[in-house]
């Protein structure tokens, strides 16, 4: 390898152009009809639209169907362990803030085994785009109840129907101190999904997007109403919100919501209606990586400092 180039140089002298296909990794092996395919396509498009440099982009995931995501994106990636995508992503971004970091998690990954990390990552508010691919079920391990499984749905671990009402990831996220970007969209709303991902990527801070995602094998019916009848979905609209003319045409129930209003955002997250759009955004919240920014020191500078420390401890 030749001499190290600075990040600045890598960023400037670049006449490459990337098409969507350039971001395609290995062939996705999700089931036919899985909502993840649509999300993957939207992400490929997002990367191409932004002409994001593959070498400076990192996708991090945990374990589950959706966590195969990094393998299907031709950037750097880290397919980690169950529930722990966010700590890995935190480490990447803290040590290399210049990298663009994306995280994909499933509902079991994020809201169950990784719930502790989820809450704290929201609070750190590190600049990363976090996608919760929520199919309301454990897919890879074959149909066990997840925290977001609808009450009463029969699964292999709760065979008389899931016992508890589901946890709402939006309410949880909006309840955490320092939450700075919270949106919801769905895999069957391609243009809205694309617009939401774009807004999430542009947000400086921890952008949390819950994507309602179909699992044709284990939860084929949980989103049927929302898919078949546009009237059961409320579209959040605002000048500062997500703009998608197609969705605005199809989904007639518009809710005018100012995304700077957290109290209203929390109220909208409650209730039985499916609501998509931007619930909350505030870029003024502190970002952990900014608070922790440290100067670059040469080995010689460090040695001089430690020598002074040794003087202090000298006999």
């Amino acid at each position: 390898m030749s001499s190290p180039c600075s990040i600045l140089e890598c960023g400037t002298t670049d006449d490459r152009h990337f098409e969507m296909d350039d971001y395609a990794g290995t062939v996705a092996r999700w089931c036919p009809g899985c909502g993840d395919h649509a999300i993957l396509t939207a992400v490929h498009r997002l990367l191409a639209n932004g002409q994001m440099k593959p070498e400076n982009t990192v996708f991090v995931s945990g374990i589950g169907c959706s966590s195969r995501f990094p393998h299907y994106v031709e950037t750097y990636g880290f397919h980690g362990i169950h529930g722990r995508a966010l700590p890995i992503a935190t480490g990447v971004k803290l040590s290399r803030p210049e990298l663009d970091v994306f995280v994909t998690m499933g509902d079991g990954d994020c809201c169950s085994i990784g719930a502790g990390h989820w809450i704290h990552a929201i609070r750190y508010n590190i600049d990363m785009t976090v996608l919760l691919l929520d199919n309301n079920i454990y897919g890879l391990t074959k149909k066990q109840t997840s925290p977001t499984t609808p009450q009463g749905l029969i699964t292999n671990t709760q065979t008389k129907g899931s016992f508890l009402p589901p946890l709402d990831p939006l309410q949880t996220t909006l309840g955490v101190t320092n939450a700075s970007f919270v949106a919801q969209t769905a895999d069957w709303m391609p243009s809205h999904l694309a617009a939401t991902l774009q807004a999430a990527k542009e947000h400086k801070g921890f952008s949390f997007v819950r994507i309602l995602q179909r699992c044709p094998v284990f939860t084929p019916d949980v989103f049927t109403d929302a898919i078949k009848d546009p009237d059961v979905t409320d579209l959040l609209t605002h000048d500062d919100g997500i703009h998608d003319a197609t969705a605005e045409r199809i989904y007639k129930s518009h809710l005018f919501h100012d995304p700077s209003d957290i109290t209203e955002a929390r109220r909208l997250a409650e209730g039985d209606r499916t609501r998509v759009g931007l619930f909350f955004r505030d870029e003024s919240f502190p970002r952990y990586e900014d608070l922790r920014a440290v100067p670059k020191r040469t080995p010689e500078e460090k040695i001089a400092f430690i020598n002074a420390e040794l003087d202090r401890h000298a006999v």
Binding site: P87, R96, H120
Partner: peptide, 18 residues
């Protein structure tokens, strides 16, 4: 970090990043 598990996870992420 928020717990022992996250502590090593963050370290691994940082090491992966170089």
């Amino acid at each position: 970090a928020e717990d022992e598990i996250a502590a090593i996870g963050v370290a691994i992420g940082a090491s992966f990043a170089g």
